[in-house]
Design a protein around this nucleic acid. Structure first.
Length: 564
RNA sequence: GGCGCCAUGGUGUAAUUGGUUAACACGCCGCCCUCUCAAGGCGGAGAGUUCGGGUUCGAUCCCCGAUGGCGCUACCA
């Protein structure tokens, strides 16, 4: 099924669903999540290091996690795995999984990427409880639509003098950085603008001098707890006062940056566990400082290691296809990909099982068992899992998935203009080649000889020519041609075929490869391929079908081959 | 340069969180099945846990250091 933009009906249904869920929650033990969160948030005094959510809190509180991609490109395996782990954690703990679009990079964010992203998530079976298309109590879920909210919080920080306006120019900052490197120091902002007094600062701003807003990093170490790495600590002097809001009067001027909005949103959306890629680990102290500035309690973190290519470099386009969309196009089944991604950085207790359905994963998945070390992406294992699920899949489903490849090749009619006979036959084709497939898009190449039999090429092949050069091969071919010539085109059954081969065996004395290879080459163009028992019906039935290309019957094949 | 994270066969993960002949899967190799190619069944090779110290009766596991890889060090996310 194709998942497109949401229809109005779907949207309404989703909203109703959410409402119903909300009522159920409110009626139950989690009576007032919002109040609870508020208490929690203000309980902690400024300057305190991040505290673990105690086990009591954990019990009382429903877990809430989010996947927060930026729509700047296609969803790739790394992010998909992050989404999956978030989803699994939410489902395992009975919590909520939210989708939030981080589109504060106005230059690179595109709506079509957002649409594609949601389609990919759905394809993987990762439905979100709140987010675009579903909505929820914390809407909007697109950061570009939350700018007014951030502005309010920035104002508060400025007023409390926890943040300050920075009037430094790019040149000044670059000079600072160069100096820091020369002196073997961390490249942290000097804090030059920290000391500008509030009145003067407001004045300069009013005069139209461009400024960014920076957070004042406190001078105590910034600590947080990470569920896969344990306690992590950063000294405050290596953490630069982070930019909260961009300067300038252009399109991006006044737009807050990632580190800031991610924190504000995670807090406002009551995220309890921030599960994300390793590349954010070094950003976390800045975010912790933001939580502290607001007096909000820090959530639990879980930083997932990177996925690497076979050269141990961060997986990228250089390593070939890595987008979820491309996997789908190749004919990797979503359950195979989900299973594979789950295994990339996580192992079930005991570690002896490899195949898990999404339900089984949900049951067994524990964040504590996620590995901290990076994992190398391995096509061979993905293919193994895909073959596994391909064999499990309903043939009808595969027929539907594979149809497009053949339609595109011009070998099958458009699926809506097809007949039940053709569909049934195509299913036979798929079953025939299934054991030899890593991914569905390999099917046309494997099945090519059925639709496009090339007698000349078969003859021309060197290996074939050698096999056919013997006297025995000639005799076998003649004997076979004689028999197939006497039968009606398209009428040969596997039984008939078997009987003929036995006769030819007796008649010519050829056996084994000697007997079968010439026939196989004449019929398929290659000396290896699927079993004749299954192949014969495919060819003969196919020859009687009304397809865009005529499938040659056994008889026609032999005739063409002898003429070639 | 600074800071952080990571380190078990080729690859992904296990190992009652100090006591194992270091396990499973993928891949590889071989055998069986078979006209062939796959699939399937059976078996095999492949790590002494990056290196060096320490703690301990005993370290894959705890501590320190080194090395290597990766990440961050952006008014990207």
């Amino acid at each position: 099924m194709r998942v497109g933009a949401f229809s109005g009906a779907a949207k309404t249904r989703a909203a109703k669903l959410w409402l119903a869920k909300k009522r159920a929650v409110e009626a139950g033990t989690f009576a007032s999540l919002t109040n609870y969160f508020h208490h929690r948030g203000h309980r902690e005094t400024e300057g305190n290091a991040a505290k673990l959510v105690s086990s009591e809190d954990m019990k009382a509180q429903k877990t809430r996690v989010r996947f927060a991609p930026s729509p700047t490109g296609l969803l790739h395996v790394g992010n998909a795995r992050t989404a999956l782990y978030n989803w699994l954690f939410a489902r395992h703990t009975g919590g909520d999984f939210l989708l939030r679009i981080e589109d504060t990079d106005l230059d690179r964010s595109e709506a079509r990427h957002e649409t594609q992203l949601m389609e990919d998530l759905r394809w993987l079976g990762l439905e979100w409880d709140e987010g675009p298309g579903v909505e929820g109590p914390h809407a909007p879920y697109r950061q570009s639509e939350r700018l007014a909210i951030y502005r309010e919080y920035t104002e508060q920080l400025l007023q409390e003098s926890k943040a300050y306006r920075c009037f430094c120019t790019n040149e000044e900052l670059e000079a600072e950085r160069a100096k820091a490197v020369a002196e073997h120091r961390a490249q942290a902002y000097s804090g030059k603008c920290r000391s500008i007094d509030a009145e003067r600062s407001a004045e300069r701003a009013a005069l139209g001098e461009p400024f960014a807003v920076r957070l004042r990093i406190p001078d105590h170490p910034l600590r947080f707890h990470d569920m896969v790495r344990g306690e992590v600590e950063f000294a405050s002097d290596v953490v630069s006062d982070p930019i909260l809001v961009r300067s300038g009067s252009g399109k991006t001027g006044g737009v807050p940056v990632y580190n800031y909005v991610v924190t504000v949103d995670d807090a406002l959306m009551e995220i309890t566990h921030v599960i994300r890629g390793d590349d954010h680990l070094s950003n976390t102290p800045k975010q912790v400082a933001i939580y502290q500035a607001f007096g909000w309690k820090t959530p639990e973190f879980a930083h997932l290691s990177m996925i690497l290519g076979s050269d141990r470099e961060r997986l990228s386009k250089r390593h070939g296809a890595t987008s979820i969309a491309s996997f789908r196009e190749m004919g990797i089944l979503p359950e195979a990909l989900v299973n594979y991604l789950a295994l990339l950085g996580w192992g079930a207790e005991g570690g002896t099982r490899e195949t898990f359905s999404q339900e089984e994963l949900t049951r067994e998945f524990k964040l504590e068992r996620v590995t901290a070390s990076p994992a190398v992406f391995d096509w061979a294992k993905l293919h193994w899992l895909n073959r596994h699920y391909l064999k499990q899949a309903e043939p009808a489903r595969l027929t539907e998935l594979a149809w497009a490849y053949f339609e595109k090749a011009g070998w099958l009619p458009a699926s809506d203009g097809s007949s039940a006979e053709i569909e049934a036959w195509f299913e036979m084709v798929i079953v025939l080649f299934l054991p030899a497939l890593d991914q569905l898009d390999q099917l046309p190449e494997k099945a090519k000889f059925i639709f496009k039999f090339d007698a000349e090429a078969a003859r021309a092949d060197e290996e074939n020519a050698t096999l056919l050069a013997t006297e025995s091969a000639q005799k076998v071919l003649e004997a076979f041609a004689e028999r197939v010539g006497s039968a009606a085109s398209g009428s040969v059954t596997p039984e008939q075929f078997k009987a003929w081969m036995n006769e030819i065996k007796a008649e010519t004395g050829a056996k084994g490869k000697e007997l079968f290879h010439p026939v196989r080459i004449a019929l398929t163009g290659a000396h290896s391929g699927p079993e004749f028992d299954k192949l014969i019906p495919v060819i003969e039935t196919g020859s009687g079908l009304d397809l865009p290309v005529h499938v040659l019957s056994l008889r026609e094949r032999v005739e063409q081959f002898l003429r070639a």
